[in-house]
């Protein structure tokens, strides 16, 4: 199957069920909102080595936030509800409460499964904290040196899908990088998904395990151009660079849509083929068949 000049490999991406929460962060202006986003999302690329996979879902206009300031919705994925709770409390406490002017709200009011956030962080107030019930939502007001840090008592947690992916195999690094940028730009427009890696792009795709017994993951050698000739390469003859886009989303359909949009944006001159990472279908319960995704009538396959 080809889309334009780009060959679509007959393979699938394998993704996992994970838990996620969504928080809404607001700040005085875009500068401090950006600072908060950068800090909160830092070191949040993959649960292989981080406490959570974290990313910016979308920016929110000041008219649409609870406190009338510019905001952003951030999604955080973890292996369990407990992992999500630990990560969101730690990151909010260290990265958002410390950031000038920020406030933090729940972005999934509809979720009945909830984890405490302000309920824990309020203790930083050392007894001077106050709560305020507005409607049915409780907010904590923690006194800080620039006024008050407002944080919602709890945030909702839901089941999500993490690890959706596709690989862009390009003629050279420049062409591949531009294609990856087009993909990420397209996916950024969508709701309910994040691309948690730097700039949304991964250059160090991994395989499970290593020759070193203590390592859980190591470089995907079959896709490394510099190892061509030394290993059984999966690269076409004229491919000189591979970038991976990893997608986490609130559900299968969201990740499928992001994968489809991302691939469509990536294909073009100099993009040799599009592939995907999987583990033979044995580990993740969500399978995204690339060719099915790109045909009109199908959205891949879900083991559910």
């Amino acid at each position: 199957m080809k889309v334009g000049p780009t060959f679509i490999e007959d393979t699938f991406a394998e993704a996992f069920s994970m838990r996620f929460c969504r928080i809404i962060v607001t700040a005085f202006n875009q500068r401090w909102l950006n600072a908060a986003i950068s800090e909160f999302c830092g070191y949040g690329s993959s649960v292989i080595g981080c406490d959570a996979e974290v990313g910016l879902e979308q920016l929110i206009d000041s008219q649409d936030t609870l406190d009338g300031r510019p905001g952003a919705s951030l999604m955080l994925f973890g292996f369990s509800t407990e992992a999500v709770q630990k990560a969101v409390v730690n990151r909010t406490g260290q990265c958002l409460m410390t950031c000038p002017t920020t406030a933090v709200f729940d972005g999934m009011q509809e979720s009945t499964d909830r984890v405490p956030l302000g309920k824990h962080l309020r203790f930083f107030g050392d007894g001077f904290q106050k709560s305020k019930l507005i409607g049915e939502r409780r907010f904590w007001r923690v006194p800080v040196m620039d006024g008050e840090f407002i944080v919602e008592e709890s945030v909702g947690v839901n089941k999500g899908v993490a690890g959706g992916n596709f690989l862009i195999l390009s003629r050279d690094q420049t062409t591949g990088l531009h294609a990856a940028e087009r993909s990420v730009d397209q996916i950024t427009k969508l709701q309910n998904v994040i691309t948690p890696f730097p700039g949304g792009v991964v250059r160090s795709g991994s395989k499970v395990g290593s020759k070193y017994k203590d390592l859980r993951a190591s470089t995907a050698h079959a896709f490394c151009p510099s190892l061509r000739g030394r290993v059984e390469s999966k690269l076409p003859e004229d491919a000189g660079c591979v970038y991976e886009i990893v997608i986490d989303g609130s559900n299968f359909e969201a990740v499928a849509e992001a994968t489809r949009s991302g691939i469509k944006a990536a294909v073009g001159e100099g993009i040799i083929s599009i592939s995907a990472g999987n583990y033979g279908g044995k580990l993740g319960k969500h399978h995204f068949q690339l060719r099915h995704l790109l045909s009109k009538d199908s959205q891949g396959a879900n083991k559910d």
Binding site: L66, D67, G68, A103, K132, I134, G135, G147, E148, I150
Partner: peptide, 13 residues
């Protein structure tokens, strides 16, 4: 004497 963020939220409510 300062703007009170929680009052801003109450206004919205």
């Amino acid at each position: 004497f300062y703007p009170v963020p929680i009052l801003n939220m109450l206004a919205g409510w």
